[in-house]
Simulated scan of single mutants.
Amino acid sequence: MTTTETVLTGERADILESLAKARHFLRHTVRGLTDEQARARTTESELTLGGLIKHVAATELQWRRFITDGPRAMDFSSDAVEGWLDNFRLTGTLEEVLDSYAEVASETDELVKTVDLDLAHPLPTAPWFEADVSWTARRALLHIVAETAQHAGHADIIRESLDGQKSMG
Rank of each mutant, 00 (worst) to 15 (best):
R39C: 05
Q150H: 15
K113W: 02
H143C: 04
A146H: 07
I53C: 09
T114F: 00
T4P: 04
R12A: 09
D156F: 06
G70V: 00
L90D: 09
F88E: 03
L142V: 07
K166F: 10
I53Y: 01
L33F: 00
L85N: 12
G169D: 10
H24R: 14
K21N: 12
L98V: 11
L117Q: 01
E160R: 12
H154E: 05
R64H: 00
A38I: 03
G32N: 11
V133K: 14
I157G: 05
T43S: 14
L52Y: 01
M74W: 10
A140D: 11
L19I: 13
P122S: 06
T42Q: 08
E147L: 02
A73Q: 08
T34Y: 06
A131D: 14
A149G: 06
F129P: 07
P122R: 12
S100V: 03
L49K: 06
T3G: 12
V81G: 01
I53M: 14
K21E: 13
K54T: 07
T108C: 09
H28L: 11
E17T: 15
V133Y: 08
R159Y: 06
W128H: 15
S100P: 01
L61P: 00
H154R: 02
A20I: 01
A140F: 05
P124R: 04
Q62W: 06
D118C: 04
A146C: 01
G169N: 12
K166S: 13
M74D: 05
T29G: 03
T2W: 08
L8W: 14
S45E: 10
Q62V: 07
L142R: 11
V133E: 08
P124H: 05
A40M: 14
A146N: 10
L8A: 11
I15P: 04
A73M: 12
I15R: 07
Q165C: 12
A140S: 15
L119I: 05
T34A: 09
L123G: 01
G92R: 04
V7S: 08
R12N: 07
D14T: 15
M168Y: 11
V56I: 15
D35T: 08
L94I: 05
E46Q: 11
P122W: 00
G32Q: 06
E17G: 15
A20H: 05
D14C: 07
I53V: 12
R12S: 07
L98N: 00
R31L: 07
D14W: 09
K21P: 00
S45Y: 07
R89D: 12
V104W: 02
T93Y: 03
T43W: 05
T93G: 06
D86P: 02
L61N: 10
L19G: 10
R39G: 03
L90K: 00
F129H: 13
F129I: 03
A105S: 15
